[in-house]
């Protein structure tokens, strides 16, 4: 009974926290943008505009849902969920803190410590793209179609390099479990051993989450919103939450693989974990505020001709080092 309660509690804290964080990332993004762009940003709703995400959520909920007449209605309605659910589920294997003792039981602060954790994350990320492609196809409209095609091509190209960039860490740690990888970084974070892997991961992470400078599937100035052009109301909001959730999840993966996860001096582990994730998120926002967008062919060229060879090279070098040095 107690075990069940603890699992329930972990699920609530984990997913609730993730969703809340995702909502507040929109607030943070707007404030960071405002800071960079010499503006004020949202500061009217609540202190420092802190209630803004809630107000936005309420507003979107009360908006009319518009389903285009030519759309494939069932898929059109389901597609946002297909993006959101994997984005949430992927977070399940990320350890966000050390073990704590609750009601006399030792509880690991990870929803599910499975031994193929990183494979699971990639599987979930792979499913997420279906939501985008299905949504754009079901809209039966031209801009979303182009956005969906771009998205499919982009995610396939960059997922390979993303996986490769993490392989080095997996080889050094000797485990696919994220908990095991955090344990392996007791001495020093893997960013020291895998600087190239880290750089590759950060670039691929941007592309994987459709963020600037790789935000081609949305590309407001070209495709007027890309895959979610036809979406409104909560369907649109779900897409948007899914985007932020996958950003947070990948930030968490990055923090776990390269920055030592929840490890850190003085502060409690959960706080360290949050700081590292927020640092990644800030980097996301900083880049979006300061870079132009790549063109489609340049994006594909960069993925296949630069990132993939480099990540394979990184794997080979790491493998050599692991075998010969130990």
């Amino acid at each position: 009974m107690v075990t069940l309660l603890i699992i329930l509690g972990k699920v609530l804290v984990g997913f609730g926290g993730l969703l809340l964080l995702a909502a507040y990332m929109t607030w943070m993004e707007r404030r960071v943008f405002a800071l960079i762009q010499v503006r004020v940003g949202p500061n009217r709703v609540g202190p420092s505009g802190l209630l803004q995400p809630i107000a936005d959520g309420i507003k979107l909920m009360f908006k009319e849902t518009i389903i285009p007449a030519q759309a494939d209605k069932v898929i059109y309605v389901l597609a946002p969920a297909v993006t959101l659910i994997p984005a949430l589920a992927a977070f399940a294997v990320v350890p966000f803190g050390d073990s704590v003792t609750v009601l006399g039981q030792k509880v690991d602060l990870v929803l599910a410590d499975i031994n193929v954790g990183i494979l699971y994350i990639f599987a979930m990320a792979g499913i997420g793209v279906y939501g985008i492609v299905l949504g754009s196809w079901a809209s039966n409209s031209k801009y979303p179609l182009i956005g969906g095609l771009r998205s499919a091509a982009q995610l396939i190209s960059y997922e390979l390099s993303l996986g490769m960039s993490l392989l080095g860490v997996v080889m050094i740690a000797g485990t696919l479990s994220l908990k095991g990888i955090v344990e392996g970084q007791a001495g020093m974070p893997y960013i020291v051993l895998q600087p190239l892997g880290f750089l590759l991961f950060v670039v691929c992470m941007l592309a994987e989450t459709n963020r600037a400078p790789f935000d081609l599937p949305e590309a407001e100035s070209e495709l007027t919103g890309g895959f979610h052009t036809e979406y409104s109301s909560m369907h649109f909001a779900v897409y948007s939450i899914a985007e932020y959730c996958s950003m947070i999840t990948l930030s968490a993966v990055g923090a776990t693989f390269f920055l030592g996860g929840w490890r850190g001096p003085l502060l409690p582990p959960v706080v360290w974990f949050l700081i590292k994730v927020l640092a990644f998120m800030f980097f996301f926002m900083w880049l979006r505020a300061s870079t132009p967008r790549l063109r489609y062919d340049q994006l594909m060229g960069f993925g296949w001709k630069v990132l993939l060879p480099l990540s394979i090279l990184n794997v080979i070098l790491t493998a050599g080092a692991v075998v010969f040095i130990g």
Binding site: Q37, A212, R288, A289, P292, R293
Partner: peptide, 16 residues
């Protein structure tokens, strides 16, 4: 022009 290429901040600097 910068906004068309996805660079948002230049736009706000110019409008300032």
């Amino acid at each position: 022009h910068a906004l068309d290429l996805g660079a948002m901040t230049v736009f706000l600097y110019c409008f300032r």
